[in-house]
């Protein structure tokens, strides 16, 4: 199998897995929300409601496709598309499993090993806000516009703190490639042990970047109806909602690989390279990712939404100074 064939198969597989995980994250969200509120959740479609995401998807496809007359038609259609594309593009640099060695050929379980992987990730994630902004602007609706503006300012504010928390991580691992960062964390040497404060800042920012509760101000129902997706219907709305879950999946995978060792696990790291190691490593990676997805959902159904000024206060006056402090402390540790 040539390198190219493998890459194509791998990319299609990652694409499929992203969609599949996102699909079942919607199910997990509904089910967990119900459990946390002493309810049963969807349990009619299939055993334990396992086919519910399919039913939801079919329902969204059959909904009336409505484009407001006063909206900017082209941008209105482009908005969800941009949002979805950027959400899917982020998975390219995530190493999902250790290298696979068959007959002397090495297959990397990563779509692209960029030496600036983290920067790529940041670039694509910040492109994602254009999807929201374009969609909200094109709707020609005050609520949508307000939601879009909130999304933009929120992302800008929190990207700074996120970037600074990553700076200290990069200082520790002295590499921007996600693969190198994961490879350095073999066994128990996870970055969370060296960067607890950085992890805290990063995870708070990850919640804000994915527009999830308690930072879901861009779509906060009580003030803005639906925020940036107020005017969207049918599968366009579906794309917006779905892309959010892909963001959750990717954020969880990034959190797992940056701070929790990705596919590294004490006994798995010591195995000889081969299919077994790849398989176990992949499972470890998905278990960690799954835990973070659970955390995302758990937090959403625990914490109430922040007020907008509280959000900005937290971003600018707390997280950024903390992140700078973290960089300084890390620098001092490296120096001495």
């Amino acid at each position: 199998m040539s390198e190219l064939t493998f890459k194509i198969i791998f990319i299609v597989a990652v694409f499929g897995i992203s969609l599949f995980v996102a699909m079942y994250t919607t199910y997990a969200e509904r089910k967990l929300a119900a459990f946390l509120q002493d309810r049963l959740g969807p349990n009619r479609a299939g055993p334990f409601g396992i086919l519910q995401p399919l039913a939801d998807g079919v329902k969204l496809f059959f909904k009336e496709e409505f484009i407001p007359r006063v909206s900017d038609r082209l941008l209105f259609i482009a908005g969800p598309a941009i949002f979805m594309c950027t959400a899917l593009m982020t998975s390219a640099v995530i190493p999902f499993a250790p290298d696979l060695e068959i007959n002397g050929t090495t297959y990397a379980m990563q779509a692209a090993d960029l030496n600036v992987g983290i920067l790529y990730l940041f670039g694509v994630v910040s492109l994602g806000v254009y999807g929201i902004l374009v969609g909200g602007w094109a709707s020609n609706n005050k609520f949508s516009l307000l939601g879009a503006i909130r999304a933009a300012s929120q992302n800008i504010s929190y990207e700074l703190a996120m970037g600074l928390s990553i700076v200290s991580l990069v200082m520790v691992s002295s590499s921007l490639s996600l693969r190198d960062i994961v490879d350095q964390q073999s066994g128990w040497a996870w970055n969370i042990l060296y960067q607890p404060l950085g992890f805290l800042i990063f995870i708070v920012c990850a919640f804000a970047e994915t527009n999830r509760a308690p930072f879901d101000l861009p779509e906060c129902e009580t003030e803005l109806i639906g925020g940036y997706h107020t005017e969207f219907s049918s599968m366009k709305l579906g794309l917006y909602l779905f892309a959010e879950y892909i963001h959750v999946f990717i954020s969880s995978a990034v959190l797992a690989s940056l701070y929790f060792g990705g596919y590294q696990f004490p006994f798995v790291s010591d195995l000889d390279p081969g299919p077994v190691k790849t398989l176990l490593g992949g499972l470890v990676m998905f278990a960690k990712t799954g835990f973070f997805i659970f955390l995302f959902i758990w937090i959403r159904w625990t914490l109430p939404r922040f007020r907008y000024d509280q959000l900005m206060n937290l971003g600018w006056k707390v997280l950024i100074p903390l992140a700078v402090l973290n960089v300084l402390i890390t620098a001092l540790f490296i120096l001495f």
Partner: peptide, 13 residues
Amino acid sequence: TLSHLFRKKATIS
């Protein structure tokens, strides 16, 4: 909230 996860559900299907 986590303690509610394992609590008996109020719903009767």
